[in-house]
Design a protein around this nucleic acid. Structure first.
Length: 491
DNA sequence: GTACAGACTTGGAACAATATTA
DNA sequence: TAATATTGTTCCAAGTCTGTAC
């Protein structure tokens, strides 16, 4: 924490000091009140030393320790549901520490106290043996709710209204079934999408402000894959989604182009310009008219209303289904460009390019790694060096292998160029999130079958396990069902 | 209709393991 | 073979959405 930039944020420092002072209040160190006079170097060095020691261990030592840890934890990693023994996801409670809220979170730096057995509610079958709490302790409660899938839970110690749950792991039947349902729902949206698009285009012109806002909000959700944007408490970071967009978050440019600039989930900036539907553009101008930058654009609707309207058009449809639908159908469409005779490596590049497109659509970002610039510089050095080698080789007219060597050098040059390009382009784009949450695995796996690409080229072991339910999908699987008519993306 | 608790999914960062390069 | 880069996994914060109570 010391070398992260949290320690430079006043809110963080204040919250931390409030907690720290309270902890010291009745002891011999109660005189400590000023953060700037505190020197945590000794503690820092201590933890640094532990980390160094870990690094120095031989891989055999590391393996031995890991194996022992696995044995110790084994009893806690399984639970039985409907007679099946299945993997538990997060079986450990969260350890004490300092709260690391994202963005400008008003509670960042608060001390997260230890969670004790007395905080924990156990949810277990009526006749099952209740796990023993640690000696001298007892559980807060033991309940038998067989309509919920969580195994244990406690009130979060920072946002007390929130609950934290112990859940089954990604490979479990409950998770697999719900994942499957999610993708089937997104897939069936395709059958309704034309009707829905017609509906919102018509309603944009409605006299009713609520109807018009409903329509424009749905349009933005469909076209830009934005999130719903529920109302948030004051004591959380100020982030927004469609329904909570404020006038200051959009700028009207020429030619029906709108610039969106707001902080979304996890305080990730959404900064994109889009040419949008002419009527929607005019509607938005009307919605913001006379409003200051801090006033809601969609003051007549909220996610509940949008979802209720969507459900009049398709059973079970909600805003987030559009994200899944548009992500999956984009992958489906782009993978069609895969060339039959390409090498596996080239096919993977096609896949990654499609994946990247989806990540940009969903605005999945990551921070630029600290080493990025240095790494790029290194590659640039390499590029220079290669250029020099090429120039020298060109002079060696007496070398009978000159042509061959030159070709090899050129090949290395082009590979390096592609590598540099990719690295720069992906420095802020996160590909993993859409793979885990938005892309129907059957699109990927059927593509693997058709193009003879082993699944582990595009999926990690954990993902292959998570998507076990999709492994035996048909080679001809198509996200767009056969009986569906052709539909173009939202304009 | 609205507010809120409850339950579950989604998300980036940190950390760990593995692969690649010098 | 060590240093560095890349890939994979874990952690836990932060969303969405449903059901219920008034």
């Amino acid at each position: 924490m010391k070398d992260s930039d949290y320690a430079t944020k006043p809110v963080f420092v204040k919250n931390f000091m409030d907690g720290f002072k309270a902890a010291l209040k009745n002891g011999p160190h109660a005189f400590i009140t000023d953060f700037s006079k505190c020197d945590f170097t000794k503690m820092y060095m201590h933890f640094l030393a532990i980390r160094e020691k870990k690094k120095e261990m031989t891989s055999e030592e590391k393996k031995r320790i890991k194996a022992q840890k696995d044995i110790d934890e084994e009893p806690y990693t399984w639970a039985t549901i409907d007679g099946r023994r299945e993997k538990v996801g997060n079986f450990r409670v969260e350890p004490p520490g300092l709260f690391r809220g994202r963005g400008e979170h008003p509670k960042m730096g608060k001390i997260k106290r230890r969670v004790v057995p007395e905080d924990i509610t156990i949810n277990i079958g009526k006749d099952a043996k209740v796990p023993e709490p640690p000696a001298g302790h007892s559980w807060k409660a033991v309940i038998h709710n067989d309509t919920a899938t969580w195994l244990a839970g406690w009130n979060d110690v920072i946002n007390v209204k929130d609950w934290k749950y112990v859940q089954f792991g990604a490979t479990s039947t409950v998770k697999a079934e719900s994942d499957q349902k999610k993708y089937e729902k997104a897939r069936s949206l395709h059958k309704y999408i034309e009707k829905i698009r017609k509906d919102y285009k018509r309603n944009m012109m409605s006299e009713s402000k609520e109807m018009a806002q409903l329509a424009v909000a749905t349009y933005l959700v469909d076209k830009l894959a934005l999130r719903a944007g529920g109302e948030k408490d004051e004591d959380l970071a100020d982030t927004v989604g469609v329904c909570t967009l404020r006038a200051g978050h959009i700028k009207f440019m020429d030619d029906n182009v709108i610039e969106f600039d707001f902080l979304g989930k996890d305080s990730i900036q959404y900064l994109q310009q889009h040419k949008i539907d002419e009527v929607a553009y005019k509607c938005l101008q009307r919605f913001v008219q006379g409003k200051g930058p801090d006033v809601d654009i969609f003051d007549h609707v909220d996610p509940q209303k949008v979802n209720a309207h969507l459900q009049t058009l398709m059973p079970g449809l909600t805003i987030k289904v559009f994200r899944t639908y548009n992500a999956s159908i984009t992958l489906d469409r782009l993978l069609k460009d895969t060339k039959k005779n390409d090498t596996t490596l080239q096919k993977k590049a096609t896949y990654d390019a499609a994946n990247k497109e989806v990540a940009i659509l969903c605005n999945h970002q990551k921070g630029v790694s600290k080493a990025h610039d240095a790494q790029m510089e290194k590659l640039a050095e390499k590029k220079k060096d290669l250029a020099k080698q090429v120039a020298e080789m060109k002079k060696k007219t007496d070398d009978k292998n000159q042509k061959k060597k030159l070709a090899a050098l050129k090949e290395r040059q082009s590979k390096l160029a592609i590598q540099m390009n990719m690295k720069e382009e992906l420095k802020t784009v996160s590909l993993g999130t859409s793979k885990i949450n938005y892309l129907d695995p059957r699109i990927t796996l059927s593509w693997c079958k058709r193009h003879e690409v082993p699944p582990n080229v595009v999926f990690t072991k954990a993902l292959i396990d998570k998507f076990h339910w999709a492994m035996d999908c048909e080679m001809e699987f198509s996200f767009v069902q056969e009986d569906a008519v052709e539909v173009k993306p939202a304009e």
